[in-house]
């Protein structure tokens, strides 16, 4: 049991973070909080990918004669590249989201979802 907890602790944290983010995206009424939830969800996924690429007793993926040529000595580069992309995509989405929040505030004077819906009526 304890062994299982250690070897899978990352993944549990990942699930926890993602669900926290998802909950904030659905249930929170404040638009900025929704954005925070979005980023937490994304970082959860990034953590998931990075943890699957980690190796015990390995170093960073820069080939160095000091550590030898064998692939087992280096952490997985592929997941890292995928997640570099995901981070940049995430910040771009966040920027667009925050821009929309600012525009909405300018037009409706509130960033609370309920209040904005009230103004429509």
């Amino acid at each position: 049991m304890f062994e299982y907890l250690i070897t899978n602790y990352n993944y549990m944290v990942v699930v926890f973070l993602m669900m926290m983010g998802l909950w904030a995206m659905i249930a929170k009424k404040n638009l900025v909080k929704k954005c925070i939830g979005l980023v937490i969800f994304q970082t959860g996924i990034i953590l998931f990918y990075i943890s699957m690429g980690a190796k015990n007793n390995s170093t960073i993926p820069i080939i160095d004669p000091k550590y030898g040529e064998a692939a087992i000595n280096y952490a997985n580069p592929l997941t890292q590249i995928l997640m570099l992309t995901a981070i940049v995509v995430g910040v771009a989405t966040l920027g667009v989201g925050l821009m929309l929040v600012q525009r909405i505030y300018k037009e409706y004077g509130s960033i609370n979802e309920d209040r904005i819906l009230e103004k429509f009526k």
Binding site: V39, T43, A54, T59, L84, I87, V88, V91
Partner: peptide, 18 residues
């Protein structure tokens, strides 16, 4: 976990700029 490039980007993008 050995993902230095990702951490570097996150430090600059996630913690800094965003």
């Amino acid at each position: 976990m050995g993902a230095v490039d990702v951490a570097f980007t996150e430090a600059a993008v996630g913690a800094g700029v965003s």
